[in-house]
Design a protein around this nucleic acid. Structure first.
Lengths: 105, 105
DNA sequence: AAACTATACCTCGTGACATGATGTATTGCG
DNA sequence: CGCAATACATCATGTCACGAGGTATAGTTT
């Protein structure tokens, strides 16, 4: 997928991945990858950003001797997803504009 | 609209605006603005980029004593729009992922 | 004539962001 | 013991949108 198109979707995908159940970095990548490819460096950058924005909270936990940092979505994070659904309506009108008269050519 | 979401759409909108008829900067802004807001500085940056990518060609013309630069889409530009339509399928699966189980919360 | 608005172009600095490269450390398997 | 998988993190780089600012002409208002 075009890299610029991904930019607006990545944050939302990460939030969606922790929306129903707290999750951690490695798992988020596995869950999201089928839909949109993202590397570790990208994910951890995003997680830091979303945390600083107050869209998620972090809790460290040990699992089988390995550190895991579980991410939990906040009300603000949930609202971010809802706002995306509003943005989607605008995106659809843009899509219509781009593809209209396509069949006439 | 979220600025990151716009990034992947702006190029496409500009190409769509000149797809059926050659157009010029000032007119492109007026045509595209109802669907997605973009400033002059943004547009001219995009036009330069699309030209260097070979997605459009430029032709200068005088109109009522004022300079106008008409932009014409190339085959590559048309292909770019078609590729977007392919990307759109992926975007739809992302959208499904983000909004699924929305009603269960 | 002066002031202002619309038309029409352009550049530059800034800040945001995705990503590859790179690094650290542990567990489990062959 | 070596290697893959798990799990975290940082940094440098390149791309890009956009506000601020600039130039110039035509038409309209004061």
């Amino acid at each position: 997928m075009d890299i610029q198109l991904k930019r607006g979707l990545l944050d939302i995908c990460v939030l969606a991945a922790i929306k129903n159940e707290d999750s951690y970095g490695y798992k988020i990548i596995k869950d999201v990858s089928p839909y949109i490819q993202l590397s570790e460096s990208t994910l951890y950058t995003i997680l830091k950003r979303l945390e600083s924005m107050g869209m998620l909270t972090v809790r460290s936990a040990e699992h089988d001797g390995r550190l895991r940092k579980y991410y939990h979505i906040t009300d603000l994070g949930v609202k971010r997803i809802e706002d995306f659904r509003e943005d989607w309506k605008e995106i659809m009108t843009v899509y219509s504009f781009v593809t209209k008269e396509e069949q006439n050519d």
